[in-house]
């Protein structure tokens, strides 16, 4: 069984294997297909129309399945690899080991945002940005520039305390746990982290930065923690909602998996701990 660990607790060997598997997917072209898929959904999910990957109840199960696909691809390269998660409410500075040269590398240089160290720096030749929205082909970051602070533990807990999974109109205007975790309303958790990292992470092609997966693995863990805290609440809507994926409707692009199939993460993986 796959166990997803806090990135801060990974051994040197675990970091090396994760990076190696990511680079292998990049080389064989599978990585960029994930970027392309994500951008397609980012551009087509709208508040007033069909919405599946973002700004909708299925934001959480959609990304759970998307991460499962990516993790399985990594494991096809190295079966020992699991997706680590980044608890940005704890490891909240540019000095976190996450950003060291033996893992993801650090922030971008001031002139053009280019990441200059670590395995994903353009100078390695191993990380061309191919699926992109502008002419720049190098990984960029501006850690802490777009917004100064990552969410705090208290802000996370305030969102975890919300009792309703989601609410009408099931989009970026909704009250409830999902939209507050996604960040379109309230203290802003998930969206704010994308902005804090900057560079490609602030764009529709955000999976170009490998931290995308560690960010979403933590968002996914927060869903699991919310479920444990609210055992009587569940995914909504339950049926008959235009443009929105109901509990038992299948999701694009897979068309063979429903939110109902993804509610219990322990069918697929466990976490090192759900206590924090």
């Amino acid at each position: 069984m796959t166990v997803r660990k806090n990135q801060a607790d990974l051994t040197a060997d675990e970091k090396r294997r994760f990076v190696g598997a990511v680079l292998a997917l990049k080389r064989d072209g599978r990585y960029d297909e994930f970027v392309r898929t994500h951008n397609g959904f980012i551009m087509s999910d709208t508040d007033t129309g069909e919405r599946t990957g973002h700004r909708s109840p299925s934001f959480l199960p959609w990304h759970r399945r998307f991460l499962l696909d990516f993790e399985r691809a990594l494991q096809s390269v190295d079966p020992s690899v699991a997706l680590p998660y980044w608890d940005w409410s704890t490891d909240r500075t540019v000095r976190a080991s996450l950003w060291a040269p033996d893992f993801l590398g650090g922030t971008g240089r001031a002139s053009d945002g280019r990441v200059t160290d670590g395995p994903f720096a353009a100078a390695t030749g191993d990380w061309p940005i191919s699926v992109r929205v502008d002419g720049r082909t190098f990984l960029r970051r501006s850690l802490g520039a777009g917004v100064r602070e990552l969410p705090t533990r208290a802000e996370v807990e305030s969102v975890l305390s919300m009792t309703a999974y989601d609410a009408m109109p099931y989009n970026s205007a909704s009250d409830g746990f999902r939209n507050h975790l996604e960040g379109w309303r309230g203290v802003n958790l998930h969206n704010r982290v994308h902005v804090w990292v900057g560079g490609q992470m602030g764009t529709g092609v955000s999976p170009n930065d490998p931290v995308f997966w560690l960010h979403h693995a933590y968002v996914d863990k927060l869903w699991a923690r919310w479920q444990r805290g609210h055992p009587d609440a569940g995914y909504v809507p339950a049926g008959g909602t235009p443009d929105v994926v109901d509990l038992n409707e299948t999701m694009k692009p897979w068309n063979d998996v429903r939110p109902a199939d993804l509610l219990d993460h322990t069918r697929f993986y466990t976490f090192d701990t759900l206590d924090r």
């Binding site: 508040d47 205007a173 998930h190 602030g202």
Partner: peptide, 15 residues
Amino acid sequence: RNADGTWISVVSHYA
């Protein structure tokens, strides 16, 4: 355009 009248673009999608 978001439901509250705010706007995003593909190069600044989360802000």
